[in-house]
């Protein structure tokens, strides 16, 4: 097992290097000028030319690439044009907010999606199945932008149950930054007021994002549950006189979860890239908006660094998914053969 993980990590490094090289060259050969955003629309040509030299974009691509590799070897991802800060510092700043929100959204998806999938399989074509189908449909098809604004309008503006967009009430002082995730940092600082307020601020964005993930999870759980429930061993279990709940959870669900875990993994990977629209509506200082701006303004260092981070996240989530398979189904073993 340890050997397997190690081998996967080595492959991961190679993947990352490949992605870095490809992203770097794509960014430099696209017919866009990074100076356009650095210099702004109004700067005269002289300013553009001077800044081009200052930022090193006047050098041939291979020289720029060499410099980049040199810096990368020192663990330096370069400076972002849009923040003037090292890209690594930016990522460490924005990523925790995204991880926090993505995790909570995933919890919402799982906690609602799996029971919903199970119930709609067990009570196929019943009202609950229809409800699940409609909810899934809403989840995947409703524009996030619209849904987010409607939820804000109802729960913040009209009912006043939930707070304004943002991460924390502006009158509250953020606890000392340890992980960057407010829920964790506030627990470390034993600041329950901040914990409560941060959680309340997360409810709406997490619901919007969670609803999207929920759809896929509920559908896949339903179909694989239907598949499993028609298997001989389920009949055997029932004939044995086993409690129906045990049949469903221990015998059926555990097997049905294997495909669901794949979907959950992909959903989580997607959520961790950050969501531009949700972050925009809910004033969430996450990775999505940072990366979107980076791509649109051709903030080269941030583009390459951010792409590598997203790739890394996906690879790690995939690895985790593979390990969970083994846990769910002991027949799956990762050996050297």
């Amino acid at each position: 097992m340890a050997h397997y993980v190690l081998r996967r990590l080595v492959t991961l490094m190679i993947t990352l290097i490949g992605i870095m090289v490809v992203t770097f060259f794509i960014s430099l050969v696209v017919p866009l000028d990074p100076l356009a955003s650095i210099a702004g629309p109004q700067a005269p040509q002289e300013t553009v030319d001077r800044l081009r030299v200052l930022y090193g974009f006047d050098k041939p691509i291979y020289v720029q690439f060499g410099r980049y590799i040199q810096r990368l070897a020192r663990g330096d991802l370069g400076t972002s044009f849009q923040t003037g800060r090292p890209v690594l510092a930016d990522i460490l700043h924005f990523f925790p907010a995204t991880i926090e929100l993505a995790t909570l959204a995933l919890i919402v998806s799982i906690l609602v999606g799996i029971p919903l999938g199970v119930l709609s399989a067990v009570y196929r074509n019943s009202p609950i199945d229809h409800f699940s189908r409609v909810l899934s449909l809403i989840g995947v098809s409703m524009p996030v932008f619209w849904l987010g604004l409607v939820l804000l309008l109802v729960f913040y503006f009209k009912l006043g149950w939930l707070p304004e967009p943002g991460r924390l009430d502006i009158m509250l002082v953020e606890p000392e930054r340890v992980t960057g995730a407010l829920l964790i940092d506030s627990v470390i600082a034993r600041d329950w007021e901040v914990f409560g307020d941060a959680l309340r601020h997360m409810v709406l964005p997490a619901t919007v994002l969670g609803l999207f993930g929920l759809a896929g999870i509920a559908r896949i759980v339903r179909s694989s549950m239907l598949d499993v429930l028609s298997q001989e061993y389920i009949k055997t279990a029932r004939i044995k006189g086993l409690n129906e709940l045990l049949v469903l959870t221990r015998h059926a669900l555990r097997n049905a979860l294997v495909p669901a875990v794949t979907v959950i993994g992909l959903t989580y990977g997607g959520l961790l890239e950050g969501s531009v629209l949700t972050e925009t509506i809910f004033s969430w200082p996450g990775l999505g908006r940072y990366l979107a701006t980076a791509f649109l303004t051709l903030d080269l260092n941030a583009v390459v660094g951010g792409t590598m981070l997203v790739a890394l996240t996906f690879c790690l989530v995939n690895l985790m998914v593979d390990l969970i398979y083994a846990f769910l189904n002991p027949k799956i073993r990762y050996t050297e053969s």
Binding site: L152, Y156, E164, P165, G166, T280, F282, S283, P285
Partner: peptide
């Protein structure tokens, strides 16, 4: 406060 979305600014000022 950074609020990119104008609709969101409107809701918050009205609230």
């Amino acid at each position: 406060k950074e609020i990119v979305e104008a609709t969101s600014r409107r809701l918050q000022v009205e609230k």
